[in-house]
Amino acid sequence: MESERETPKSERILSEIRLFREREKVRDVDEPMEKMVIFRVAGELYAFPGRNVMEILPAMEISPIPGTPPCIPGLITVRGEIESVLDLRSILGLPGLSEGEGQILLARGGSIRSGVLIDSVEDVADVPLSAIFPPPSTLGGGAGEFVAGRIDMGCGNVLLLDTDRIFVLAAAP
């Protein structure tokens, strides 16, 4: 039987639970995170690592260049500097034309910098590294070779794209 001075068992258990939860909170804060730019192309969600995205640009006129493949629709001018533009929909082999006017991510992969035409930016989020998993084994088609991982966003999955690989392959004439 518990004495009157002794802490009730239920209280001890509650304390342990609170302590455990506090430790969990601390661990959450310390968990390494990576900033991700999450965007939509052809109705699907994709992400680039934030460190690879320099700027999110509004829709702007793209000046076509004769001789470039369909995945390179042309050039844009960003504050007086000429930048190339890649059409991610074309690179990933996704059907249809770009929806609306689209947005352009000014991104870098390896030593290459280029605009990347997407449909719309959905979010810029800090993602815990524990939420990043290897690419789905079922992933095939044109997109498969450019996917570096899968991000579990709780409400669904986002495919993490390998910017280095995209840019290197696009640059191969």
């Binding site: 260049i65 470039t68 390179i72 042309g74 000429i82 930048e83 030593s111 290459i112 840019f167």
Partner: peptide
């Protein structure tokens, strides 16, 4: 020209 475009454009003299 940006590196992604240059190899293609040069083949057209640009």
């Amino acid at each position: 020209l940006p590196p992604l475009v240059a190899p293609f454009a040069l083949r057209r003299g640009i």
